Amino acid sequence: MGAMSAFSKTFTLVTRNKKLYILPLIMSLILAPLSAYMLSNSPFLQSNTPKSSQTHSGNVIIEEHGSLTSETAIKGGLLRILAMYAVVALLLASIFQYSVVKGILKSLTESEYSLSGVMVDGLRHFPGVLVLNFIFTLIAFLLVTLPILLVGLGAMAGNAGLILVVLGLLLIVLVGILSVSLTVLPVPIYAERGSLGSAFDALSLIFSNIRTIMAFGFLVLLVLVAIEIAATPIAVITQITASRGAVYISALAQAPLDALLYFFMWTAGVALYKELKRMEDLKKVDRELDELGLEF
């Protein structure tokens, strides 16, 4: 019941705060050309065969291949581009996530708020969001390590390890569903309470309401998959044309859908937090009534 309530609340908050969509859209439009540049310089869009030239010496053809050094330089350059993109993406995501979350929270208590105001809040608090996202993403990564090991052990064992493979894959799916809440819940707590330490209450909220968390994560994943499916035709066109110009066009065309994905996820975090908080308050009241020996 709590999962459905939080899920439906997410759609209500999204429609009520449509102007906040502008913020993740700005972020996506900034990142689009950067990701396109990275992709256009990827070996996957370039020939994997080293360039060669032929010279004739009598009846003998001498073929000169590109040097290993040049290939290594290309891969090293790609890694630098990837690292730069990751840093920029993390910084922007931290700023805009806090801004959107703060805007959603303000909409619950205030009739009006300004985009510039929440953007200033995002700029002021993005270091904290960066730290929280890193820590909780690391926790999610550690949780998925065991299932991956099970799959690996099962694969090495051959037919006898089929059960381990199936179990590992099932656990990977369950951890993925759990990770949805694990990554979106801390920032709303931080934004409302104002301290990094309080954001770690997300762990107790998650594991004390695990059924609600898993159901909610599953529902949110369905929406995210639907958004990704909607973006698939654009990506397919890019793969067909496989040209640098098409990569940039595709990235810009996908930016609105990427922005919708971020907007929905960040809003879902607020809706989930508010629902879990309501459930915890009800549990607290029930405990107090039990202590007093009262029943309703």
Rank of each mutant, 00 (worst) to 15 (best):
M1D: 13
M4E: 13
K9Y: 00
L13A: 01
V14S: 05
N17C: 03
K19Y: 04
L23Q: 02
L23Y: 07
P24E: 05
L25F: 10
A32S: 09
P33H: 07
L34I: 15
S35F: 08
M38Y: 10
L39F: 07
N41A: 08
S42D: 07
F44V: 15
Q46D: 08
Q46R: 13
N48W: 09
P50H: 13
K51T: 07
S53F: 10
S53H: 06
H56D: 08
G58V: 01
I62D: 11
T69V: 15
T69Q: 08
S70R: 04
I74W: 04
L78W: 08
R80V: 11
V87A: 15
V87Y: 10
L90M: 08
F96H: 04
F96Q: 01
V100A: 01
K102S: 09
I104R: 10
K106H: 13
S107E: 03
T109S: 11
E112G: 02
H125W: 07
L130G: 06
T137Y: 09
L143Q: 03
L143A: 06
L146A: 10
L149Q: 05
L149E: 08
A157F: 01
G158L: 00
G161D: 03
V165C: 02
G168W: 01
L170H: 01
L170T: 14
L171E: 03
V180Y: 06
V180Q: 07
P186A: 05
R193C: 12
D201L: 13
S204L: 14
S208G: 13
A215N: 06
G217T: 02
G217C: 02
L222W: 13
L222N: 02
L224H: 14
V225D: 09
I227M: 13
I229S: 14
A230R: 13
T232I: 05
P233V: 00
A235L: 12
A235K: 10
I237P: 04
I237A: 15
T238C: 13
T241A: 11
A242Y: 07
S243Q: 05
Q254N: 11
F263S: 02
A268K: 06
V270Q: 05
Y273E: 01
K277E: 10
K277G: 01
D281T: 15
V285K: 14
R287T: 06
E288R: 14
D290F: 05
